Simulated scan of single mutants.
Amino acid sequence: MTTTEQDGQDRGRLHWAARFEDVKNATVGSALRRLHWDLRLQPFHGYGSSTRVRVLAKVLYAAPGSPADFHDKPVHDMRTMAVRGWRNFTSQVAPFRTVRILLGGREYSVRADRSGIVDVELDVDLEPGEHEAVLWTVAGNEVTAEISVFPPEATVGLVSDIDDTVMVTLLPRPLLAFWNAFVMHQSSRQLVPGMPMLYQRLAREHPGLPVLYLSTGAWNVFPVLKRFLYKNGYPDGALLLTDWGPTNTGFFRSGREHKARALRRLAELFPQRRWLLVGDDGQHDPSIYAEFAAEHPELVEAIAIRQLTESEQLLAHGTLRPLPSRRRGADAPLTVTAPDGHGLLAALQRSEVIS
């Protein structure tokens, strides 16, 4: 079931905050249409296999005369990418709009959800490699989205957390999302030592390595995160982010459930591929990965956990020690820990996951 289909089923049971958001979107959208604002699409990096791919985008309003690629350009042109996330929160979403997709010579018609998000899986016939999907709502506002089709011979893939795994912000976790989104300049984000080297080593050892960055960050900061990864030498890959808006049950989506659901989706789409799961011990990554491994032990190559310092632990959840995690059984996958990418690489080499 797609996100849009699930959203439609749950709409009658929405939390009051979600109903309020729907009224706001309808009221503001109506006003913008009267001012002759147009629909625009912000494409995200999709991924999939030769027979099924996931396409991601967001439908937004834009002032008259704005170029069709005003959100597309920052993703594809690193020199012009926005460096502060707050700019990406000033746009108004356009819910439930029909979006056309042209990919591999076939045209598809899909529908955005109540948050303006397009998140669909399409049956395709594509060669492994990089492809471009063309998306539009009306003639003239076409944009292109990157689609990575993973080669079938790539038996190992990489799933990586972002905050405190590939970069460090050094802020209390309650302020982290706000700071990342609205304040922090991308050059102020601190690189976790050795992590780009670790991921580059994996990419060299596994040609065509599927790379996915799984985070509880909002789709609004996609351009900022893309730029950080690009500038610091991380392998290119799709970002699996989430929407911050209210749901049918509360004010915010569950970050833990977002990650668990994303992993389950990977298991369905790639039932033969094994994943190296990389995260940190500041929140719930160890438990989430352990639970996934218990459900799908055949799909986990290894788990690598970055150990936060005591000060980072304090900022992450208020104590000096890591949060309790799910106990691993005798048949649990290999799990290595270290404070940075250098240590994780050495541990994975000792365990012969990396030569």
Rank of each mutant, 00 (worst) to 15 (best):
V211G: 02
H15A: 11
A181C: 10
Y61F: 15
T144W: 03
L334I: 12
P210S: 04
G48M: 13
A177S: 15
V23E: 02
K231N: 00
H15N: 15
F89V: 10
Y289A: 02
L102C: 04
E127Q: 06
H15Y: 10
P223M: 06
R106L: 12
R54H: 00
L334A: 04
E146L: 10
P207C: 12
R321M: 12
R114P: 01
R189L: 14
R253A: 14
I303Q: 13
A330E: 11
L171T: 07
R265P: 02
V159G: 10
T80L: 09
A330W: 12
A330K: 10
R204V: 12
N248F: 05
A262H: 01
S30M: 08
L276K: 07
V353P: 01
T80I: 14
I162H: 01
L266Y: 05
G341E: 13
P223A: 11
A260H: 05
A133K: 11
W275E: 02
G29M: 12
D340H: 09
V53M: 06
L35W: 07
L214Q: 05
E127R: 04
R261K: 10
D281I: 02
P324E: 04
R52F: 00
P333S: 07
T319Q: 14
G329N: 05
V211I: 14
R273K: 15
S30F: 09
Y234S: 03
A338V: 05
R100V: 04
K24E: 04
P196R: 03
L103F: 03
Q283A: 08
T51Q: 14
N180V: 12
R273W: 11
P235A: 02
R52Q: 10
N88D: 14
Q283T: 00
Q200D: 14
F292H: 01
W179L: 03
A332K: 00
H36K: 15
M184V: 11
T51S: 15
A181D: 13
D285T: 08
A154K: 05
A145R: 09
L198H: 06
G29F: 13
T242M: 09
A94V: 06
Y289N: 04
L348Q: 06
L175M: 15
L348F: 11
Y213K: 04
